[in-house]
Simulated scan of single mutants.
Amino acid sequence: MATEKLYYQDQYIRNFTTKVQKLDIDESGRTYAVLNETAFYPTGGGQPHDTGKLNDVTVYDVEEVEGEIRHYIEGPMEIGTECVGQLDWERRFDHMQQHAGQHILSAAFEDTYGYKTVSFHLGKETCSIDLEVEELTDGVSFDVEKIANNIILENRPIEAKWVTEHELANYSLRKKLSVSDNIRLVIIPDFDYNGCGGTHPNSTGQVNAIKILHWEKQKKNIRVFFVSGNRMIKQLHEKQHVIGGLTSLLSAPQEQLVRATGKVLQQTKHLEKTVDELKLALIKYEAKELIDGTGLAPGRKTMKVIFKNRPMKELQLLAKSIMKETSSTLIVLLSENESKFQLVCARTDDLDMNMNQLIKQVLPMINGKGGGNNQVAQGGGDTILPAEQLMKALERFIES
C-alpha cells in the first residue's frame, strides 16, 4: 500500500502533499478522511497515533480500520481535495525517541540477563515494558541502564528494512513475528533485530538517553517504567524543582534529604501520638462533664446529645468513655456534619437492650447504613430531616 510506504519508510517526513479519497462518519459519530497517501502514523504496536493538520483542518486521531487509515478531523473537507499534511513534529519525534529507547532497553535486559520483554506501552508522560521475570534488583536495573546508554553513545545506525518470510533466516530475531507478509524489521546492527511497524530515529544517538524511573510487580511479571530523550530532560527538570523545594523547606542539602525527611516523619508521628492522647483526655473530661451536667438519676436513664461536625471516631470514643463512668445508661450521640448524619447508640453492661436492632430501626429514615452488636452500634445517613426529629424517633423506639 502507498500509505504504508510513505509513513513507514520516510520516518523524518513532516509535510507532504496528498488527496482526500474518502470521507465518512464512524459508528461513534466521528468524521474521518482516507487519503491516497499519508505520513500520519495510526495507533498500533504500543505506539500512539500522530496528530497534525490537513491544510487548516486538525487531525486529532488516526486509526487503521479494515485496511484503511482513518484520519479523524475537526473541520469540513471534500472528497478530491488536494491538501498538505503537516505532522505535529514534536509529538512524532518524541514517539520515535521513546520507541527506539524501548528497543534498546529491551535488548539490554535480554542480552545481559535473559529477561524477555512481553509488552510495551508508550504513555503520555512515561513508557513501560513488562519483563518476563518475577523480581528486579537495583543492581540489575543500574547495569542494564548503563549498557543501554552506552549503545546510545556509540550512535549506532537504526535501520528499517522490508523483507520476505524467506529472508528472515538471515536475522536473529528477538521474538516470533505475527505476520508472514509485509514484514518490516527494525535493526540496530550487532545488537537488536526486531519485527516492528513503529517510527524510530536514524541512529541510537538521537534517542539522547534512557532513564529507568521505577518498577512494580504485575502478576508474574515486572513492569519497568522509563523515559527517553527529551522526556528524560523534562523529568530531570521537574525532579530538580521538587528537590530544590524540599532542600529549602527542610534546610538540608540534597544528599541529606532522606535523613532529614525521616526525622520530620518521626517528629510528626510523635506529635500525632501526643495529639491523640490529648484528644482522648479531653473526651474523657467531656464524658464526665456530660454525666455531671445531665444529672442522671438512679435507675435506667438515657443520655441524648446532638453535636455539630463531630467525626464518627470521636463519637465512638465519647460513648465508650461515658459507658465506663456510669451505669444503667443508654447513650445516643448524634452529629450533623454538613449533609450527613453520624450516629452512635450504646449501653452500659448492666442494661439488656440490643443496640444493633435499635439503630437499624431509624437508619431507613435517613437512607442510612450501619450496624454493630448488642452493646454498641453506629451508622450514618443523609440529613433529610431535622436532627431533633431523628432524635425523637429514636426516643419512641427506645420507649416502645
Rank of each mutant, 00 (worst) to 15 (best):
L343A: 08
K124E: 12
D50G: 02
Q218C: 13
T112W: 02
Q361F: 04
M353D: 10
N182C: 06
E289D: 13
K211V: 11
Q267T: 07
A148S: 05
Q11S: 15
G52P: 00
G205P: 03
L333I: 06
K301A: 14
V186I: 12
L6E: 14
Q98T: 03
I69S: 01
L280I: 08
Q47H: 04
V179K: 10
M353I: 15
P201I: 03
A33E: 00
N374D: 13
L236F: 05
L358K: 06
T31W: 09
D382V: 15
E216P: 06
D61Q: 14
L390Q: 00
N230I: 06
T18V: 09
Q235A: 04
A148Y: 00
A209G: 05
K313D: 15
V163T: 01
D10P: 07
R174W: 00
L385N: 08
H166A: 14
T18K: 06
E238A: 03
E125M: 07
E336R: 13
M391W: 01
E238L: 07
V376P: 02
P76N: 10
A148V: 06
F226Y: 11
K220C: 07
F225V: 00
Y171W: 08
L333K: 10
Q21I: 14
V186C: 01
Q9Y: 11
L257H: 02
L250F: 09
E68N: 14
N170Q: 14
V332M: 15
T199M: 12
I384C: 09
L278P: 00
L333A: 09
E68C: 07
L177A: 10
V84H: 11
Q11C: 12
F16M: 14
D111K: 15
G372R: 04
Q266G: 13
D143K: 14
E90F: 04
I366S: 05
G75W: 12
Y193S: 02
L122V: 02
E255W: 07
D143P: 02
R396A: 13
A39C: 07
T117K: 05
R70S: 03
A169E: 14
A387M: 09
K219E: 08
K340M: 15
I359R: 00
Q361A: 12
R310V: 14
C83F: 02
R14Q: 13
F142K: 11
E78I: 11
I322S: 02
N202H: 10
A346Y: 03
G295K: 08
E64R: 15
N150I: 11
I129R: 01
L131W: 02
V57T: 05
T302M: 08
L54G: 07
G52E: 02
H200T: 05
V362T: 09
L330W: 13
D190A: 11
L249A: 12
G45N: 00
L87Y: 01
E338M: 09
K360D: 05
H200A: 01
A209R: 10
D382H: 13
L236N: 06
D382W: 11
T18C: 09
S339N: 15
Q98W: 12
T247Y: 06
G295P: 03
D382M: 13
G293Q: 05
